[in-house]
């Protein structure tokens, strides 16, 4: 049995179209015009217990919208999700007992209460027995270093402190499923490190199922067994990081700096067919190609035979690059 089961999940937003000016504002008050915007389209996937799924995609891809449906705060337009054997929208109070949620961009802590008080309130709300509570707090203190600021009111915490506090808050009741929406956004390396460590440890010790959305591919590479990539609300990839690299990692990029910009006219890569493309910006020529069909030395050799080159740089294929490239390609197709 999967812990998380998502089937044809779709969310349309209805947006009012605002006409400009006072007359327009008046018109749209009386007879509003709507357009439908599909933020999430037909997503289906399953997550087994104990897995960490990396949910990635560019800004506006629909990651947060998906998380909101999974956590039950948004109702899908169609499709459903079943988590821990419950439909989030149907049995809210019962469902949220067993999940933890962190939204990187907003806090779930009470703004005016000292952090320690917040945890006492959460202890009562989730009905955590004393013994478990103290054990949990000790553990969280250790991995997230909360002690330095546990007596401060939440509103005085720095972003990194607040995020650590929020993650601790989401783990206090030992949830079966943890949703993290950009938990490392805007944090410095050492805080990121602590947070990654906490996530990893909780997953190993408690078999917590985790869905993590992020921009930071470091998070993904360190934590996730599996990545699920979406763009414009649609699935574009689902598999392991290795598969991701195998599938998209062949694309390489070489940048040549020419001696004379006008030499670029003499470049001709037609012998490699569609496996290669290039673009030029003044003296810089950027060549992108599929390294399973065309070899790096061949590209360099051919280029050097056609034009005078000042400098060459070969880009390594890392995930960040892959993802960016996939998105650029997608975006180009959409335009």
């Amino acid at each position: 049995m999967s812990m998380i089961e998502v089937s044809n999940l779709t969310k349309d937003f209805r947006k009012t179209i605002k006409s400009p000016g006072l007359v327009g504002a008046f018109k749209s008050l009386i007879k509003p015009k709507y357009e439908t915007f599909e933020a999430v389209k037909n997503l289906s996937f399953e997550v087994p217990k104990g897995e960490i799924l990396g949910f990635i995609g560019a800004n506006g891809a629909g990651k947060s919208t998906t998380i909101k449906m999974l956590t039950g705060i948004l109702t899908p337009t169609s499709g459903y999700c079943r988590i821990n054997d419950k439909i989030p929208q149907e049995d809210r109070q019962n469902y949220v007992k067993d999940i933890g949620v962190v939204f990187g961009q907003r806090t779930q802590l009470w703004w005016d209460l000292p952090l320690r008080e917040t945890y006492s309130v959460l202890k009562e709300i989730y009905n955590v027995p004393d013994k478990n509570f103290y054990k949990r707090m000790d553990f969280l203190n250790e991995v997230l270093d909360l002690n330095d600021f546990i007596t401060s009111p939440v509103r005085t915490l720095s972003l990194g402190q607040r995020m650590r506090a929020d993650i601790a808050a989401s783990l206090l009741h030992n949830p079966k499923v943890l949703f993290l929406d950009e938990p490392t956004i805007g944090l410095d390396v050492s805080v990121k490190d602590k947070i990654r460590h906490a996530i990893e440890q909780i997953n190993q010790e408690e078999q917590t199922t985790i869905i993590l959305t992020t921009h930071d591919l470091g998070d993904i590479e360190l934590l996730c067994n599996r990545v699920f990539m979406i763009d414009h609300g649609q699935e574009v990839f689902d598999g392991t990081i290795k598969q991701l690299k195998n599938r998209f990692g062949h694309i390489r990029e070489i940048e040549f700096e020419l001696v004379n910009a006008e030499d670029a006219n003499r470049l001709n890569f037609s012998q490699f067919g569609s496996a290669i493309e290039y673009s030029q910006n003044e003296k810089n020529v950027r060549v992108k190609f599929d390294s399973s069909k065309v070899s790096v030395p061949d590209v360099i050799r051919l280029t050097l035979s056609q034009v005078d080159v000042q400098d060459i740089s070969v880009k390594d294929a890392d995930i960040e690059d892959i993802v960016r490239r996939i998105f650029r390609k997608e975006a180009a197709e959409h335009d």
């Binding site: 909101k68 956590t71 039950g72 705060i73 809210r92 109070q93 019962n94 949220v96 007992k97 949620v101 939204f103 907003r106 806090t107 779930q108 709300i125 989730y126």
Partner: peptide, 13 residues
């Protein structure tokens, strides 16, 4: 402002 989400995410009435 969406902060109502945080109330909805707690197991309380």
């Amino acid at each position: 402002d969406g902060s109502i989400a945080m109330r909805i995410l707690k197991p309380i009435s």
